[in-house]
C-alpha cells in the first residue's frame, strides 16, 4: 500500500512499541546495580521523581489535548519511562567502559540530569506520535491545532527545564540508542539547532551567568580571531 503520513506515523509508533517491549517501566537489574554502587543510593529519589513528573506530565497533557486524553498522556509517559531507563543504562555502560569506574554517584544524584534525560525520552515519544501532524503543518481540517502544541519546546516548560540542560543530553542520547529512526534523529537535531539559535539566548537562560563566570575565571586558552 502507498506510504501516507498517517501510515508512516503508525509504523513508527508500532516500531517504538516493539523496540521498548523488552524494556520495563522500572529500573532493570543492571541499572539497579549502578544505583547500589553509588556512594549515595539514588533509587528512592529516582522513583519519586518519576512519579511526580508523571503526574505533572499527564496533567499538562490533559490541559493541552483535553481532559478525556489524560489516559493517553499516561500511556506516552510510560513509553517515555521505558526509554529513559533503557538509555540511562546504555549511557552508564559506555561511561563505565570509557572511564573505568562504576560509581556514578554524582551524576545519578543530579536531578537536572534525570529530568533532562526523561524530557529527551518523552520528546522522542511525542515526536513519534506527532510525526504525521507535524508534516502537514500541525492542523487538522477544522483548523484546530493538533499535537504541535506538545512538541518541543513544550516539554521544557512542563518540567521547568532550561534548554541549556536539555541540550547536554541530546548527543549522548543518540549515541546510546542506536535504534532511533532517521526521522527522530533529525527531529532531535532540529531541537539542538533551535536551542543553539534561539532558546539558549533568551533573557532567563543560565548561559549568560556561565559565560560571565568563565570570563571572571579568565580564558583557558586564547580564542582564535573570528574568521570572515
Amino acid at each position: 500500500p502507498p506510504q501516507t503520513p498517517v501510515r508512516a506515523a503508525m509504523n513508527s509508533i508500532a516500531q517504538l512499541r516493539v523496540d521498548l517491549t523488552s524494556s520495563g517501566d522500572q529500573p532493570s537489574a543492571n541499572l539497579a546495580v549502578y544505583f547500589k554502587n553509588c556512594t549515595v543510593d539514588p533509587t528512592e529519589e529516582v522513583l519519586q521523581r518519576v512519579e511526580s513528573l508523571g503526574q505533572l506530565f499527564s496533567q499538562r497533557f490533559g490541559e493541552a489535548v483535553g481532559p478525556r486524553c489524560v489516559g493517553l498522556g499516561k500511556q506516552r509517559f510510560t513509553l517515555g519511562i521505558r526509554l529513559y531507563y533503557r538509555v540511562m543504562e546504555s549511557m552508564l555502560k559506555s561511561e563505565e567502559k570509557r572511564l573505568s569506574v562504576q560509581n556514578f554517584s554524582k551524576l545519578l544524584n543530579d536531578s537536572t540530569f534525570h529530568t533532562s534525560l526523561l524530557a529527551c525520552a518523552l520528546e522522542v515519544v511525542m515526536a513519534t506520535y506527532g510525526g504525521s501532524t507535524l508534516k502537514n503543518g500541525g492542523y487538522s481540517n477544522g483548523g484546530v491545532p493538533v499535537e504541535t502544541d506538545l512538541c518541543f519546546p513544550w516539554i521544557l516548560d512542563v518540567f521547568q527545564l532550561t534548554a541549556f540542560d536539555f541540550y547536554k543530553v541530546i548527543e549522548s542520547f543518540i549515541k546510546a540508542e542506536p535504534s532511533l529512526s532517521k526521522d527522530i534523529v533529525k527531529h532531535l537535531e532540529r531541537c539542538e539547532h533551535l536551542i543553539m539559535e534561539t532558546i539558549a539566548w533568551r533573557a532567563d537562560s543560565p548561559l549568560f551567568e556561565l559565560l560571565k563566570r568563565t570570563r571572571e575565571e579568565g580564558p583557558v586558552e586564547q580564542a582564535e580571531p573570528p574568521a570572515t
Binding site: R98, D110, P178, V185, L188
Partner: peptide
Amino acid sequence: NQDYHFGLEEHEGISELFDCD
C-alpha cells in the same frame, strides 16, 4: 544515526557535561 553530526570528543561524555568526573 550516521547522519547526525557528532560533536563530542572521545574523552567527553555525559559525566563531563554534568560536571562529574
